[in-house]
């Protein structure tokens, strides 16, 4: 049970990082922490104590195996996270080029 709670703690740390930090790069890192917390949680759901990988091997009967579906789903979700992070970094570089700062409080041309 405690590992699930730790995942939620990690999620909240990431959320805090996104909401409170002023540096754009730190916000992107915070988003990464959120994603990893969710992915970790998803993988832990499929974990079985003393389970093994669900791969057929010669002359072995598999009695207790780890649920492979969350692992496949997390792989997809990691790729999505990669795409989002790359896009955000590219936008952050562009923002630095236009505004000359990474400080989110100084990047406020849009309001109202």
């Amino acid at each position: 049970m405690s590992e699930y709670i730790l995942c939620f703690v990690l999620f909240c740390i990431g959320l805090y990082c996104v909401l409170r930090k002023r540096n754009i790069i730190k916000i992107i890192i915070g988003l990464g922490i959120i994603e990893y917390a969710v992915n970790l949680f998803f993988v832990l759901i499929g974990y079985r104590a003393h389970g093994r990988a669900p791969i057929l091997a010669k002359d072995q009967a598999i009695l207790n195996m780890v649920d492979p579906l969350p692992q496949a789903l997390v792989l997809t979700s990691i790729v999505i996270g990669l795409a989002v992070t790359a896009l955000l970094v590219a936008i952050a570089i562009r923002i630095y080029e236009k505004y000359g700062t990474f400080d989110i409080t100084k990047i406020r041309r849009l309001r109202g």
Partner: peptide, 21 residues
């Protein structure tokens, strides 16, 4: 890729990613 568009897109992407999480 004007300044305002990048700012809006960054805001949108951060909020959208949190929503997806």
């Amino acid at each position: 890729t004007e300044a305002e568009e990048l700012e809006a897109s960054f805001k949108y992407a951060v909020m959208g990613s949190v929503a997806s999480s």
